[in-house]
Design a binder for these strands. Sequence first.
DNA 1: CGGCGTTCGATTGCGCACAATCTAATCGGA
DNA 2: TCCGATTAGATTGTGCGCAATCGAACGCCG
Lengths: 150, 150
Amino acid sequence: MADEAPLRLQDHLCFAIYAAAHAFGQAYRPYLEPHGLTYPQYLVLLQLWERDDRTVRELGDGLFLDSGTLTPMLKRMEAAGWVARRRDPRDERVVRVTLTAKGEALRRQARAIPEALGCAARMAPEEMAPLRDSLTLLASRLRGRDEEAG
Amino acid sequence: MADEAPLRLQDHLCFAIYAAAHAFGQAYRPYLEPHGLTYPQYLVLLQLWERDDRTVRELGDGLFLDSGTLTPMLKRMEAAGWVARRRDPRDERVVRVTLTAKGEALRRQARAIPEALGCAARMAPEEMAPLRDSLTLLASRLRGRDEEAG
DNA sequence: CGGCGTTCGATTGCGCACAATCTAATCGGA
DNA sequence: TCCGATTAGATTGTGCGCAATCGAACGCCG
């Protein structure tokens, strides 16, 4: 009976998020590609621009990525000359990632990007903030965190 | 001067979307993995459950994916027995994708998934709809569509 | 000191995603 | 009818993403 029409693809919140993530990736491309950057690499640099000298684990905690993703990405970024990777002498298990001069310089060229994307989205900052906060809360609930954080 | 602190990672709407997409992928995993499904494959099935017998292009238009992604994915889904792929006799360029009996049967088992995820998100449908609509509009703007659709 | 469990990151294998390129089929106009 | 342009998928190469596994380094406890 109700066996038909379980839920249309377009009705799914998860698909709206999936599609928006793809659209953002595509929207960033023309701004990042001239620098040879990909979007996930840009996210790594955003973290390092905010605070330099982070471990692989710290970067992964911030982006929800593990070493299986980060290790090869950071090696590519090292080969491109934006970051340096070296073992912490005090704990040889830890790899610390730092910006090079080239990675620092990229920061200045990248400052215009967020504003450009905001224009492409044609959305005012006042609209973006609650949307962002709703999504952050949703993600934290999906991860099973936040317990009684209400 | 203002050269420091361009924008923190956590302030970016794009990152909130990126992180929410990942969180959804992880949240779906325990429901899909027992069936041997991945999340993008589930999206393909959602489209076919809604209306069977679609071309690769139609599936790609709905999911914003191209043949480079869909061709191998559909081959895996065919190998798993959920769909069949065959050339349209009237236009040999076109590949039509149809559900098998096994793919139809999976539909019934999958009916409980959206509700389960809604519970995991701990979000009422009345909250989800506007969030979904905001994201869909945002994505359409980022794609450069929608022109004066206000 | 010696041994055990933990932590860190690297590695492997698989699947998604996209740009670029290719081939075959179809369509359209001279 | 023939030729060029277009369209649909397939293919190739590169990079992201995750589960599972591994080995080295560390910390603790006796």
